[in-house]
Amino acid sequence: MSDLADAFAAAAMLIWSLDQDLVGIVLLSLRVTLTAMAIAAVIGLPLGGALAVFRFPGRSAILITINALMGLPPVVVGLIVYLMLSRAGPLGALGLLFTPAAMILAQAVLITPIIAALSCQTISGLWEEYREQLQSFAARRGDALATLLWEGRIALLTALLAGFGRASAEVGAVMIVGGNIDHVTRVMTTTIALETSKGNLSLALGLGIILISLAMGVAGGTYALKLAAERQRSA
Protein backbone atom coordinates (compact mmCIF):
# COMPACT_ATOMS: atom_id res chain seq x y z
CA MET A 1 0.00 0.00 0.00
CA SER A 2 2.75 2.41 0.98
CA ASP A 3 4.67 1.43 -2.17
CA LEU A 4 1.77 2.69 -4.21
CA ALA A 5 1.47 5.87 -2.18
CA ASP A 6 5.20 6.45 -2.49
CA ALA A 7 5.03 5.91 -6.22
CA PHE A 8 2.21 8.42 -6.53
CA ALA A 9 4.08 10.96 -4.47
CA ALA A 10 7.23 10.48 -6.53
CA ALA A 11 5.23 10.70 -9.75
CA ALA A 12 3.59 13.93 -8.62
CA MET A 13 7.02 15.27 -7.75
CA LEU A 14 8.36 14.41 -11.19
CA ILE A 15 5.50 16.26 -12.87
CA TRP A 16 5.63 19.19 -10.47
CA SER A 17 9.36 19.66 -10.86
CA LEU A 18 9.15 19.24 -14.65
CA ASP A 19 11.72 16.46 -14.58
CA GLN A 20 13.88 16.71 -17.65
CA ASP A 21 13.53 13.08 -18.74
CA LEU A 22 9.78 13.20 -18.29
CA VAL A 23 9.39 16.47 -20.21
CA GLY A 24 11.58 15.15 -23.03
CA ILE A 25 9.46 12.03 -23.33
CA VAL A 26 6.19 13.98 -23.29
CA LEU A 27 7.42 16.44 -25.92
CA LEU A 28 8.63 13.64 -28.21
CA SER A 29 5.30 11.86 -27.83
CA LEU A 30 3.38 14.98 -28.74
CA ARG A 31 5.65 15.71 -31.69
CA VAL A 32 5.26 12.19 -33.07
CA THR A 33 1.52 11.96 -32.56
CA LEU A 34 0.67 15.48 -33.74
CA THR A 35 2.74 15.04 -36.89
CA ALA A 36 1.13 11.67 -37.54
CA MET A 37 -2.28 13.27 -37.04
CA ALA A 38 -1.43 16.05 -39.50
CA ILE A 39 -0.33 13.53 -42.14
CA ALA A 40 -3.39 11.37 -41.54
CA ALA A 41 -5.59 14.49 -41.82
CA VAL A 42 -4.09 15.53 -45.15
CA ILE A 43 -4.81 12.06 -46.54
CA GLY A 44 -7.87 11.01 -44.55
CA LEU A 45 -10.08 14.09 -44.79
CA PRO A 46 -10.09 14.41 -48.61
CA LEU A 47 -10.25 10.62 -48.96
CA GLY A 48 -13.25 10.34 -46.66
CA GLY A 49 -14.91 13.31 -48.35
CA ALA A 50 -14.30 11.90 -51.82
CA LEU A 51 -15.80 8.57 -50.80
CA ALA A 52 -18.89 10.43 -49.65
CA VAL A 53 -19.31 12.63 -52.73
CA PHE A 54 -18.05 10.59 -55.68
CA ARG A 55 -19.51 7.35 -56.99
CA PHE A 56 -17.03 5.09 -58.76
CA PRO A 57 -16.39 1.39 -59.19
CA GLY A 58 -14.59 -0.05 -56.20
CA ARG A 59 -15.99 2.56 -53.83
CA SER A 60 -17.77 0.00 -51.65
CA ALA A 61 -14.65 -2.14 -51.47
CA ILE A 62 -12.60 0.86 -50.30
CA LEU A 63 -15.25 1.80 -47.74
CA ILE A 64 -15.36 -1.72 -46.32
CA THR A 65 -11.56 -1.86 -46.22
CA ILE A 66 -11.29 1.46 -44.42
CA ASN A 67 -13.91 0.47 -41.88
CA ALA A 68 -12.10 -2.81 -41.29
CA LEU A 69 -8.79 -0.99 -40.89
CA MET A 70 -10.29 1.22 -38.17
CA GLY A 71 -9.80 -1.65 -35.78
CA LEU A 72 -6.29 -2.44 -36.99
CA PRO A 73 -4.15 -3.83 -34.14
CA PRO A 74 -1.23 -1.43 -33.57
CA VAL A 75 1.32 -4.26 -33.32
CA VAL A 76 0.34 -5.43 -36.79
CA VAL A 77 0.79 -1.92 -38.15
CA GLY A 78 4.15 -1.84 -36.39
CA LEU A 79 5.12 -5.12 -37.95
CA ILE A 80 4.14 -4.06 -41.47
CA VAL A 81 5.90 -0.71 -41.21
CA TYR A 82 8.91 -2.51 -39.72
CA LEU A 83 9.06 -4.83 -42.72
CA MET A 84 8.77 -1.88 -45.10
CA LEU A 85 11.53 0.08 -43.37
CA SER A 86 13.92 -2.76 -42.52
CA ARG A 87 17.06 -3.00 -44.61
CA ALA A 88 15.60 -5.66 -46.87
CA GLY A 89 12.27 -3.80 -47.19
CA PRO A 90 11.21 -1.54 -50.06
CA LEU A 91 11.84 1.62 -48.01
CA GLY A 92 14.96 0.29 -46.29
CA ALA A 93 17.25 2.65 -48.15
CA LEU A 94 15.71 5.61 -46.33
CA GLY A 95 17.23 4.40 -43.06
CA LEU A 96 14.18 5.44 -41.07
CA LEU A 97 13.88 2.42 -38.80
CA PHE A 98 14.29 3.24 -35.10
CA THR A 99 13.81 6.99 -35.68
CA PRO A 100 10.88 9.25 -34.74
CA ALA A 101 10.04 9.42 -38.46
CA ALA A 102 9.30 5.69 -38.45
CA MET A 103 7.03 6.14 -35.46
CA ILE A 104 5.22 8.99 -37.19
CA LEU A 105 4.74 6.81 -40.25
CA ALA A 106 3.38 3.92 -38.20
CA GLN A 107 0.92 6.09 -36.29
CA ALA A 108 -0.18 7.83 -39.49
CA VAL A 109 -0.92 4.42 -41.04
CA LEU A 110 -2.80 3.47 -37.89
CA ILE A 111 -5.13 6.48 -37.75
CA THR A 112 -5.62 7.46 -41.40
CA PRO A 113 -8.45 4.89 -41.76
CA ILE A 114 -10.11 6.26 -38.61
CA ILE A 115 -10.03 9.83 -39.85
CA ALA A 116 -11.12 8.79 -43.35
CA ALA A 117 -14.04 6.71 -42.08
CA LEU A 118 -15.27 9.36 -39.66
CA SER A 119 -14.99 12.16 -42.20
CA CYS A 120 -16.79 10.03 -44.79
CA GLN A 121 -19.65 9.71 -42.32
CA THR A 122 -19.73 13.45 -41.64
CA ILE A 123 -19.46 14.49 -45.28
CA SER A 124 -22.13 11.96 -46.35
CA GLY A 125 -24.59 13.62 -44.00
CA LEU A 126 -23.75 17.07 -45.29
CA TRP A 127 -23.86 15.94 -48.92
CA GLU A 128 -27.40 14.69 -48.33
CA GLU A 129 -28.35 18.13 -47.10
CA TYR A 130 -26.50 20.26 -49.67
CA ARG A 131 -26.51 18.08 -52.75
CA GLU A 132 -29.36 19.61 -54.74
CA GLN A 133 -28.47 23.18 -53.80
CA LEU A 134 -24.85 22.72 -54.87
CA GLN A 135 -25.98 20.98 -58.05
CA SER A 136 -28.29 23.93 -58.68
CA PHE A 137 -25.33 26.30 -58.34
CA ALA A 138 -23.63 24.17 -61.02
CA ALA A 139 -20.82 23.41 -58.58
CA ARG A 140 -18.36 20.84 -59.87
CA ARG A 141 -17.90 17.80 -57.65
CA GLY A 142 -14.45 18.99 -56.62
CA ASP A 143 -15.86 22.37 -55.57
CA ALA A 144 -18.63 20.58 -53.72
CA LEU A 145 -16.10 18.44 -51.86
CA ALA A 146 -14.04 21.48 -50.81
CA THR A 147 -17.22 23.23 -49.70
CA LEU A 148 -18.39 20.29 -47.61
CA LEU A 149 -15.00 19.90 -45.93
CA TRP A 150 -15.27 23.52 -44.87
CA GLU A 151 -18.95 23.26 -43.88
CA GLY A 152 -18.18 20.25 -41.73
CA ARG A 153 -15.07 21.72 -40.16
CA ILE A 154 -16.18 21.39 -36.57
CA ALA A 155 -17.39 17.81 -36.87
CA LEU A 156 -14.21 16.96 -38.78
CA LEU A 157 -12.09 18.30 -35.93
CA THR A 158 -13.64 15.65 -33.70
CA ALA A 159 -12.49 13.04 -36.23
CA LEU A 160 -8.96 14.41 -35.89
CA LEU A 161 -9.21 14.24 -32.12
CA ALA A 162 -10.35 10.63 -32.32
CA GLY A 163 -7.25 9.89 -34.38
CA PHE A 164 -5.04 11.77 -31.96
CA GLY A 165 -6.48 9.86 -29.03
CA ARG A 166 -5.88 6.52 -30.65
CA ALA A 167 -2.33 7.36 -31.73
CA SER A 168 -1.29 8.81 -28.40
CA ALA A 169 -2.54 5.74 -26.52
CA GLU A 170 -1.06 2.99 -28.68
CA VAL A 171 2.14 1.25 -27.69
CA GLY A 172 2.65 -1.69 -30.05
CA ALA A 173 3.45 0.13 -33.28
CA VAL A 174 5.89 2.70 -31.91
CA MET A 175 7.59 0.03 -29.81
CA ILE A 176 8.35 -2.10 -32.86
CA VAL A 177 9.43 0.59 -35.34
CA GLY A 178 10.92 3.02 -32.80
CA GLY A 179 12.80 0.49 -30.70
CA ASN A 180 12.25 2.44 -27.47
CA ILE A 181 15.73 3.99 -27.52
CA ASP A 182 16.38 6.28 -24.57
CA HIS A 183 16.27 9.99 -25.51
CA VAL A 184 15.65 9.11 -29.17
CA THR A 185 12.49 7.12 -29.68
CA ARG A 186 11.16 6.67 -26.18
CA VAL A 187 7.60 7.96 -25.90
CA MET A 188 5.10 7.91 -23.04
CA THR A 189 3.49 4.54 -23.72
CA THR A 190 6.71 2.66 -24.42
CA THR A 191 8.36 4.21 -21.36
CA ILE A 192 5.47 3.10 -19.16
CA ALA A 193 5.81 -0.46 -20.46
CA LEU A 194 9.56 -0.50 -19.92
CA GLU A 195 9.78 1.30 -16.58
CA THR A 196 6.99 -0.81 -15.09
CA SER A 197 8.84 -4.00 -15.97
CA LYS A 198 11.98 -2.49 -14.41
CA GLY A 199 10.05 -1.61 -11.28
CA ASN A 200 10.55 2.15 -11.68
CA LEU A 201 6.93 2.91 -10.91
CA SER A 202 7.20 6.65 -10.30
CA LEU A 203 8.18 7.61 -13.86
CA ALA A 204 5.64 5.13 -15.26
CA LEU A 205 2.89 6.53 -13.06
CA GLY A 206 3.84 10.14 -13.81
CA LEU A 207 3.57 9.48 -17.53
CA GLY A 208 0.36 7.53 -16.94
CA ILE A 209 -1.16 10.52 -15.19
CA ILE A 210 -0.17 12.78 -18.08
CA LEU A 211 -1.60 10.32 -20.64
CA ILE A 212 -4.89 10.12 -18.79
CA SER A 213 -5.04 13.92 -18.55
CA LEU A 214 -4.41 14.09 -22.27
CA ALA A 215 -7.23 11.61 -22.91
CA MET A 216 -9.51 13.69 -20.67
CA GLY A 217 -8.50 16.78 -22.61
CA VAL A 218 -9.32 15.06 -25.90
CA ALA A 219 -12.68 13.88 -24.58
CA GLY A 220 -13.47 17.34 -23.26
CA GLY A 221 -12.46 18.93 -26.52
CA THR A 222 -14.59 16.48 -28.48
CA TYR A 223 -17.55 17.22 -26.26
CA ALA A 224 -17.12 20.97 -26.67
CA LEU A 225 -16.85 20.58 -30.44
CA LYS A 226 -20.01 18.45 -30.51
CA LEU A 227 -21.88 21.16 -28.66
CA ALA A 228 -20.54 23.79 -31.04
CA ALA A 229 -21.51 21.70 -34.06
CA GLU A 230 -25.03 21.19 -32.74
CA ARG A 231 -25.41 24.87 -32.08
CA GLN A 232 -24.29 25.56 -35.63
CA ARG A 233 -26.65 22.99 -37.08
CA SER A 234 -29.72 24.11 -35.19
CA ALA A 235 -28.92 27.77 -35.74
Partner: peptide, 12 residues
Protein backbone atom coordinates in the same frame (compact mmCIF):
# COMPACT_ATOMS: atom_id res chain seq x y z
CA UNK B 1 -30.76 29.08 -64.29
CA UNK B 2 -31.29 28.99 -60.57
CA UNK B 3 -33.63 27.31 -58.13
CA UNK B 4 -35.10 28.12 -54.74
CA UNK B 5 -36.17 25.12 -52.71
CA UNK B 6 -39.05 24.63 -50.33
CA UNK B 7 -36.63 24.51 -47.42
CA UNK B 8 -33.77 26.98 -47.79
CA UNK B 9 -30.30 25.44 -47.71
CA UNK B 10 -27.95 27.85 -45.98
CA UNK B 11 -24.19 27.47 -45.89
CA UNK B 12 -22.51 27.80 -42.51
Amino acid sequence: QAMVFQRPVMLR
